[in-house]
Amino acid sequence: MNLELTIVVDMFPTTLRAIAVSITLMIGRSGAVVGNVVFPYLLAAGCLPPFLMVGSILLMSTLLTVLLPNTDMKALE
């Protein structure tokens, strides 16, 4: 979680930083609640659906990190 917040703080200008951090935290907490509600239903359906859910979320997260801009040694605008 700290890595995501560091990236958000680095990417957004000062005027939008507080809103961006708040939205990031809200989405993370909402995802935790949804995961805690959905996971027992997936376990009731069998052993494979929870593995598929966790694997697909991991794959989507990996693909989304490819879209992050490369800011090494560049001044942010």
Rank of each mutant, 00 (worst) to 15 (best):
G31E: 05
M11F: 14
S61K: 10
L48H: 06
S30F: 11
G46P: 02
F39H: 05
A45L: 05
L3S: 15
I23Y: 11
T71F: 01
V8I: 10
P49A: 01
V38P: 03
P69T: 01
G35C: 09
T62F: 08
I57R: 08
L76S: 10
M26P: 04
L16W: 15
V38H: 02
L3E: 13
I27L: 08
T65I: 11
M73P: 06
L76H: 14
V33E: 07
P40F: 04
M53C: 07
M60C: 05
V37Y: 07
L25M: 10
E4Y: 14
I57L: 10
E77D: 13
Y41E: 12
L3V: 15
A75D: 11
A18I: 08
G28R: 13
L64T: 03
L76P: 06
I57H: 09
T6D: 13
V33D: 08
L3D: 13
L5Q: 03
A44L: 04
T15G: 06
G35N: 03
V54H: 05
P49Y: 00
I27V: 12
V34S: 13
L67D: 00
E77T: 09
V66C: 08
G31K: 13
G55S: 02
I19S: 10
S30A: 14
L48R: 08
L3W: 12
L16T: 15
V34H: 13
L3M: 15
T14A: 14
D72E: 10
L52V: 04
F12W: 07
G31C: 14
T62C: 11
L67S: 02
M53F: 07
P50S: 03
M11H: 11
G31H: 13
V33M: 13
L67E: 00
M53N: 00
V38D: 00
M60Y: 05
T62N: 06
P50K: 01
A44W: 01
L42Y: 00
V38M: 05
A45S: 07
N2S: 15
F51T: 06
I57P: 05
T14D: 09
I27G: 03
A44C: 07
V66G: 04
I7D: 03
P49E: 00
Y41T: 09
E77Y: 11
L58Q: 08
V21G: 04
G55P: 02
L42E: 00
V9L: 12
M1L: 15
A45K: 08
A32E: 00
G46S: 02
L64A: 06
V66W: 08
V8C: 12
I57E: 04
N36S: 12
E77C: 11
L43C: 10
S30T: 14
L76Q: 13
V66I: 06
D72W: 12
P40R: 03
L42Q: 01
G55Q: 02
T24S: 12
V38F: 03
L63Q: 05
V37D: 04
V21C: 07
N70Y: 03
V34Q: 12
T24M: 11
D72H: 14
L59Q: 06
I27S: 08
L43Y: 02
T15H: 12
I7N: 01
P50G: 01
L58F: 10
